[in-house]
């Protein structure tokens, strides 16, 4: 097991090398002038463009440029992002926690309700609870996220004024960046609790509600479907009949016996979705003006902020590899037939 993890982690640099080279190569399709232009703010100083190109060696061979970038990355320097107005590493550190927070809240909601709803639906197959669950899951699945997001925003902010967009309110901003508030983890929800500041906690949480619910719907629909069909399959198996024949209570048969087997495919699905949420809540973060990493990625891409784009992609690649490893390890925890070696 440990050897397996080490081997997988040793593969990590290889994957990252591949991903970043691909991206780097793609950015080279842009002319050196285009890549340099973001660094020259004033249109009257176009002469400086040539200066930037020469200084950063933007006309050099692709491999040479890539090697230079990689050398910096290895030393922990991801470059400076003009679109975020700060070093890329700092931008990731600043924006990622908010996204992780959002993704976590979303996944907790999705897994809890999705699994429960799926089981419920399977146990009452073809009766009214199942019909409702199927209706909700098809509905949720076919509703585009940007439509749902805007509808929710219109209703709960526009009409009712309950949940405002953004990451937190102005007052919270003042408190959080004030002298008495200590940043321990960068995760505002946790830090607010550690500081014992319930007002900040509630404020941050209330700003999470709409984006989390919007993100939930699609994943939730998928989760219910997978859990339902997986559960139905397991409930038809011989060992379930054995469990009933042994005289176990129905909840034990459903949750302990069938449930433990049915949850296995859900784990893969949940981990893939979680990683996807970490790297790509782009639309939702944009709709709700949520200060997360997805919004940073979009900004960088829109402004041709090469350092930002590369840094963002590097981060997503690392998350994917590590996340897949974690999900593989989780597998062994639920399914004893799987041994990693």
């Amino acid at each position: 097991m440990v050897r397996y993890i080490i081997r997988r982690l040793l593969l990590l640099p290889l994957v990252i090398l591949g991903v970043t080279f691909l991206l780097f190569f793609l950015t080279q399709r842009l002319s050196p002038e285009m890549r340099a232009s973001l660094y020259v703010k004033d249109p009257r100083q176009m002469g400086a463009l040539e200066e930037v190109i020469r200084q950063y060696g933007l006309r050099d061979n692709v491999f040479k440029q890539y090697g230079r970038w990689l050398g910096q990355v290895v030393r922990g320097d991801l470059g400076y992002s003009p679109s975020a107005n700060m070093p890329v590493a700092k931008a990731i550190k600043e924006y990622l926690p908010a996204t992780v927070q959002l993704a976590l809240v979303t996944m907790i909601l999705v897994v809890l309700f999705g699994v429960w709803f799926g089981v419920f639906s399977a146990v009452h197959k073809d009766k009214w609870p199942d019909t409702i669950a199927r209706f909700v899951s098809v509905g949720g699945f076919s509703l585009p996220i940007f439509v749902l997001g805007l509808l929710l925003l219109m209703l709960f902010y526009g009409k009712l004024g309950w949940f405002a967009p953004g990451g937190y309110s102005f007052q919270t901003d003042l408190i959080v960046h004030g002298p008495s508030f200590k940043m321990y983890t960068g995760f505002l929800l946790i830090d607010a609790l550690l500081n014992g500041n319930m007002r900040v906690f509630m404020d941050v949480l209330s700003h999470l509600v709409l984006p989390a619910v919007t993100l939930c719907i699609g994943s939730f629909a998928l989760m219910v479907r997978v859990m339902r069909s997986s559960m139905l399959e397991e409930l038809g198996k011989d060992y379930v009949r054995t469990a009933r024949a042994k005289g176990l209570a129905e909840w034990q048969v459903v949750y302990k016996h069938a449930g433990k087997n049915a949850i296995i495919p859900v784990i893969t699905l949940a981990s893939i979705q979680f990683i996807r949420l970490l790297g790509g809540t782009v639309i939702v973060e944009t709709i709700f003006d949520y200060p997360g990493i997805g919004r940073f990625g979009v900004m960088a891409a829109q402004q041709l902020d090469i350092a930002g784009i590369l840094g963002f992609s590097l981060m997503v690649a690392v998350l994917f590899v590590v996340g897949n490893l974690v999900s593989d390890i989780l597998y062994t925890a639920v399914d004893p037939r799987i041994r990693l070696d």
Partner: peptide, 16 residues
């Protein structure tokens, strides 16, 4: 009590 035709499938694979 009852025993079944396919013993390997009649035991829960993920419980000891």
């Amino acid at each position: 009590s009852m025993i079944f035709q396919d013993p390997s499938a009649s035991l829960n694979p993920v419980l000891t």
